[in-house]
Design a protein around this nucleic acid. Structure first.
Lengths: 212, 212
DNA sequence: CTTGCACTTTACCGACCGGTCAACTAGTGT
DNA sequence: ACACTAGTTGACCGGTCGGTAAAGTGCAAG
């Protein structure tokens, strides 16, 4: 059991910084969290941060990549593939988002909303680099939605003329809006209350459905 | 034409500060704009700001009140009362929001998104005072939406069992989401592209409409 | 044994943050 | 003429921001 203070691999420090950045920035915001706080939370000195990352922005970009990967594996894929039928998938997705937000609120006392949407709103007008990265992550989410909708068209749950591209974008927009409202309310119940609107947007009402 | 450097009424300075705070904070964000910049933009020294307002937060609260009042008078009421019929009102509203955002983008090069939603997202988790004020403004917007929906129920455009409270909240959520997407894209066309989703959410499809 | 390298540590930088203060100016009421 | 007061001014405060630089540490390969 040797103690290596030098930590030649540096993976602990790097990953600790990414984890600290995630928890703090997601829980508060980009500008409300300083690198000093991130370093303290990770148990690392400031100089080490600048050994692994060129600066705060690069650290945030790397954090967002890791965050999206986890979100995809732990939320997006399980919720959307875990059940059959468009309606059930939407419901499972809403519940997954609710549980995610409610969990963070229970841990930290704060309901964060969508980490990507938050950053897009906060930095969209004055940090093109971050904005572009966030845009790409949002596009990736939209692609998941679209493939769910395409499958629903395939299965006859949606009319064959459905514009799944447009519908997927609307899905994301409504979800982002729901999370803005939930954050403004600081109340996860907002997500459950507004969730059914997704069904109204994406599912044809029984009367409106004209089977092809 | 006397020149009064002392400005005994102080209204010019106060209103100049509110205007500068609005332009800068709406165009960027709360934390990205310092009081020094606000004062410079208003042509006023920092000490004068603290003569009229206890601090940055109070200035922002006053700015939000004025902003909402203008938004109500210049956008909300004209767009929603200027035409007849639910569908036409939604369309007019979307176009008004688009023109508002596109106008600012043309002037400043930045598409700001919803000023209230932005602040809610940025400060929601760590400034309860601002969050609460924003919540009240969002509630006021929702009330306008609801009265439009109530009128549509009255006119038989919506079924009499319609939950206009819930629908108004969904309307606001979707609008906020649309503006998040538009800001992430920095493209006002996003608003026009996603706008029709509001119609899908609020208007029964022709096939689904069962006249009462 | 030595050199090189990955990583850590500490002290430090200029810039800016929101906010304070006391002195000053100029109109107003008496 | 006087005091009062609303408003203005510029210097100043401690603290924090993101970022830098140089010295030091310990392992591994030659």
């Amino acid at each position: 059991m040797q103690i290596t203070t030098a930590n030649p691999t540096g993976h602990d420090s790097r990953e600790g910084l990414l984890k600290a950045a995630r928890e703090l920035i997601v829980g508060r915001s980009y500008s409300a969290v300083g690198i000093a706080e991130i370093c303290a939370h990770a148990g690392v000195r400031k100089g080490s941060l600048y050994h692994f990352f060129p600066g705060k922005e690069a650290l945030t970009l790397a954090m967002l990549d890791a965050l999206y990967a986890d979100f995809e594996q732990e939320v997006l894929i399980p919720a959307l593939a875990g059940v059959d039928g468009l309606g059930a998938r939407i419901e499972a997705f809403v519940r997954a988002i609710h549980d995610f937000e409610a969990g963070i609120k229970a841990d930290t006392g704060q309901l964060p909303g969508c980490p990507f949407g938050n950053l897009a709103v906060e930095m969209g007008t004055h940090n093109p680099t971050l904005r572009q990265a966030i845009r790409e992550h949002l596009d990736a989410v939209t692609a998941h939605f679209r493939s769910v909708l395409d499958e629903a068209v395939q299965d006859g749950e949606l009319p064959s003329h459905t514009d799944t591209d447009a519908l997927a974008e609307q899905w994301l927009a409504l979800m982002e809006g729901i999370l803005v409202m939930a954050k403004a309310n600081q109340d996860p119940a907002t997500i459950l209350r507004l969730g059914p609107a997704l069904g109204a947007l994406l599912n044809p009402t029984p009367e409106a459905r004209h089977e092809s």
